[in-house]
């Protein structure tokens, strides 16, 4: 098996998918558009999630990563037929690694009109610290 893994690295991905909380099957997902801004005290993350309501949004903050799952709240009524389509029904999935750079206890999130704004306060360890010379 190790030989196979070394030849085809993608085979080694399976454990990552099956570990942790990923028991649910999201089906096909798309990565939403997002923007990260950095301030002195926190990172600001803006994610566009059109058609996602508060109830269908799931934000999981782990020690080293942030996972945002947005499910589409709206589904096409049965008697509606499609004339033309550009959007997708795929759920939104965004996974960002932060390597312990944020304080996950103080994350603040706000969803309005399909735009999610997250404030991610920096962890004490990475804030610039001034050291006084004695």
């Amino acid at each position: 098996m190790n030989l196979i893994h070394s030849l085809i690295p993608a085979f080694n991905r399976a454990p990552v998918v099956s570990s942790g909380h990923r028991e649910e099957d999201l089906g096909p997902t798309v990565q939403p558009h997002y923007e990260i801004k950095e301030a002195d005290e926190a990172f600001g993350l803006t994610v566009t999630l059109p058609g996602v309501t508060k109830e269908n949004l799931e934000i999981t903050a782990e020690a080293d990563s942030l996972r945002i799952v947005g499910k589409r709240a709206w589904s096409r009524p049965k008697d509606w037929s499609v004339i033309y389509r550009e959007t997708t029904d795929a759920n939104f999935l965004l996974e960002l690694d932060h390597d312990n750079a944020i304080d996950t206890d103080k994350v603040h999130a706000e969803l309005r009109d399909g735009v999610l704004r997250l404030s991610l306060p920096k962890a004490e360890a990475i804030k610039p610290r001034r050291i006084e010379v004695a």
Binding site: R76, D79, W80, R112
Partner: peptide, 15 residues
């Protein structure tokens, strides 16, 4: 989209 009575246009315009 359309049904028997209406035509519906849906646009993704977040924010």
């Amino acid at each position: 989209y359309q049904d028997t009575h209406n035509v519906y246009v849906r646009a993704e315009l977040p924010g």
